[in-house]
Nucleic acid binder design. Structure first.
Lengths: 222, 222
DNA sequence: ACCAGTGTTAAGGCATACTTAAGAATAGTA
DNA sequence: TACTATTCTTAAGTATGCCTTAACACTGGT
């Protein structure tokens, strides 16, 4: 579950990222509006948390452009002002929710969970990779047409890797997405799970980048 | 099958909820328009029963907003007035049906079942799975031709699971569809009901996904 | 060839789920 | 309203299987 935080206030952006990671999300953080727009176009996020006051390209323009380009991603707007017209403008421009700064972390987390839950219910995004089909909606996985039973950890790990083929996930990133920040694991549990996944599918599925982490190869052609 | 009742008249709202629960639905009840709008955005309901005269945000605005936001949920509108223009306005705004107060409980229940059936896209209101037949209308269930007596909770649980074979329902989702948010349950009641269902049918009917929830296997093929 | 990093395997611990039964709650009836 | 029957929840004990651990084998890089 990948979330992009676009916020130029350093302490706020950092705090949000930490809090998000603690909740088990993967959080990326950008402070620049133009960079953010490019990231949104090129990568896939499950949610964008968008401050309105940004350098180089303001939040409202980003929001408008996202909807113009029909990019399907929920957006949670942050603003320092609490003017009604801003709120209305934001919602009109296609924001999924709206939070006025300063906000309570607990509250914003609840809203984030609500948005993510909602959007998951809508989009039936079926992840496909070679002969593997993974439907986040029903938690079902098939390989060459046959159903494959994955345990919870295996499922989380696989869906994380499959969410961005070609992207190298560091061991730390994967461990974090499996366990959050609370309880660190101090053994080779991750490697064991990788092993099980390779066994249930085929061993070339997940490539090891020695000293770094793991990747799923991009399908041919790309 | 989860239904949201939005009605500021206490006795009417309460009466509707009781009647709905008796029919095997899960009913949540709100009296405030704004709260209702938020609930509709954040939760998932199979039907909204909407009074037009509401505090803070009137029914027609809610209805309009639901359709603006493209939230997919059937709406049954209640109104005290019987003016034709209201009726037309409501239907134009996207109501699925329209009932004028005071109404007969039996009649409204029939309409509710009709709407729900229609929205599920089932021509025949009969859910079949292997040797199990479940008719939403009468709350009757047969297994291998013989009638099986299910209690209300068992029925709700089974119909929820059967509504989407192959879909993994998380424990939370099932608890919510059984109880709404009125009364939370804090024990293993869900597991007990699952146990009873397996006993009344066969234990392989419901598969456990450890750490996640439960599924009914898709029949062979796909 | 050595060493750090990674793969493989198996077993024990522990969280999760099942089972059972009894006491609350609810619905039905007079 | 009170009484009874059914249904639901709670709780405790038991069973199950996933996850971690750890020990050892392997692999690639220097």
């Amino acid at each position: 579950m990948r979330i992009l935080v676009v916020e130029d206030d350093t302490s706020l952006g950092d705090g949000l990222c930490v809090a998000l990671k603690r909740e088990g999300f993967t959080a990326d953080w950008l402070t620049d509006g133009l960079q953010a727009m490019q990231a949104i176009e090129q990568e896939t996020f499950d949610l964008v948390i968008l401050d309105l006051g940004l350098p180089r390209m303001d939040g409202m323009s980003i929001l408008t452009k996202i909807r113009e380009k029909a990019i399907v991603v929920p957006v949670l707007v942050l603003t320092a002002r609490d003017g009604i017209d801003d709120r209305v403008g934001g919602l009109d421009a296609g924001a999924d929710d709206y939070v006025v700064k300063p906000f309570d972390l607990v509250e914003i987390m609840a809203r984030i969970r609500a948005i993510v839950r909602r959007s998951k219910g809508r989009a039936v995004s079926l992840i496909t990779h070679n002969d593997i089909e993974l439907s986040p909606d029903s938690m079902q996985v098939t390989y060459q047409g046959k159903g494959v039973t994955l345990t919870r950890r295996e499922y989380v790990l696989l869906s994380e890797l499959l969410s961005r083929p070609g992207h190298v996930f560091t061991r730390d990133a994967l461990v974090q997405s499996l366990y959050g920040w609370g309880e660190e694991v101090e053994s080779n549990a991750l490697e064991v799970h990788i092993h099980h996944l390779r066994k249930k599918f085929y061993s070339e599925l997940i490539r090891t980048i020695r000293g770094v982490g793991y990747v799923i190869e991009k399908p041919v052609g790309d």
